[in-house]
């Protein structure tokens, strides 16, 4: 009984154990691995994916799926840089607010189709991905920009803290802070607000949610606007961290994010999932990618490993579903 509590509601315990095991194994194989540099490298490489994953988590809990977020992200991130260059403007905070706003507007396309016309989310977001990406290349720009406005350049080089070791300096980027805040906010939203509970309810069973008086359309509208805003924010963060704006970036990397959320225990059928699980899922994928790279394993194997983990995660969910037939939201109501 105690063991099953340790395992966690959405296999969080299992995931944490897996990550620790992997890190220890890597430490044995490659002694240089267990150091501050690995921590800062992994954090740096997961920040953008984690931001996307938070948006994806909310969408998946609501029973949907979103494959347009990478296009929305690079549109917002690249677009803001182009706008700043054109206006000769500089800044650090407002560009992120603007990118989030742009993302929300683009997410509005999804919201209108999903909430307004009640169309399947996969098809809608596939369409939006094409539209947004095409519009970016056709209207905003197709040039690789190797220099960012100075405010963003200096933000990219700002550290929360830095540890100097023999082999160089391990720097924790300042951008880890806003992402941590976002994690807490999304967790609070999902756990302790009426809106958050409504998102779970819709994902559990749309029809039941509608009958108990939840305004499904409104909640779905919020979900896609919110996911869009997070995508926009993450997009500019990607551009800032990589210190170059390439309109061809990001699109094509959807799988890693969806995988992270599903591995993190969110049910692909909706109604189930947690921020903690998502953080662990993203971390697991980042650690796996980082370790395989360190071991000199070709990138094709990384794809294979991530694919296997997704199947494993979904398989575990299916087994869990077999044990407990009723949607989780109903289980919660009954208890």
């Amino acid at each position: 009984m105690r063991l099953s509590r340790l395992r966690g509601e959405n296999n969080e315990g299992l995931l944490a154990g897996l990550i620790i095991l992997l890190v220890l194994m890597m430490g044995v194989v490659e002694p240089g691995f267990l150091g501050p540099a690995t921590l800062t490298n992994v954090v740096r490489s997961l920040l953008v994916d984690l931001t996307f994953a938070l948006g994806m988590l909310v969408v998946i809990i609501s029973g949907g799926i979103d494959v347009s977020f990478t296009a929305i992200a690079i549109f917002s991130g690249y677009g803001v840089i182009v706008l700043m260059n054109d206006l000769g403007a500089d800044g650090t905070v407002w560009p992120f607010a603007l990118a989030a706003l742009a993302g929300a507007v683009l997410g509005g396309l999804n919201a209108a189709m999903v909430a307004g016309l009640r169309l399947p989310t996969l098809i809608v977001t596939l369409g939006t991905q094409g539209i947004v990406r095409g519009a970016l290349i056709a209207f905003v720009g197709s040039q690789y920009l190797s220099n960012l406005p100075t405010g963003l350049e200096s933000l990219a080089r700002s550290d929360l803290f830095a540890v100097t070791t023999g082999g160089g300096t391990a720097r924790m980027t300042l951008l880890a802070l806003p992402v941590a805040v976002l994690c807490v906010l999304v967790a609070l939203l999902l756990r302790s607000t009426m809106l958050g509970r409504s998102i779970y309810a819709i994902g559990g069973d749309v029809e039941s949610a509608r009958r108990v008086g939840i305004r499904v359309g409104r909640v779905q509208t919020f979900v896609y606007l919110f996911a869009g805003a997070l995508a926009g924010f993450g997009g500019l963060m990607h551009v800032t961290l990589s210190r170059q704006a390439n309109p061809y970036d990001l699109v094509g990397s959807e799988l890693d994010v969806i995988a992270a959320v599903v591995i993190g225990g969110a049910s692909i059928f909706g109604g189930r999932g947690s921020v903690l699980g998502t953080v662990l899922g993203v971390t697991l994928i980042a650690v796996i990618n980082n370790s395989l790279v360190l071991l000199g394993v070709p990138s094709a194997w990384q794809r294979l490993a991530v694919g296997l983990l997704v199947l494993l995660g979904v398989g575990l969910q299916a087994l869990g579903q077999g044990r407990r037939k009723s949607p989780p939201i109903l289980a919660e109501v009954r208890s």
Partner: peptide, 17 residues
């Protein structure tokens, strides 16, 4: 790809201090 070059370099620096 700049991103790949960046990742591979971090790997190099960790493995060959």
């Amino acid at each position: 790809n700049t991103g790949v070059a960046y990742d591979r370099t971090k790997e190099l620096l960790t493995r060959n201090p």
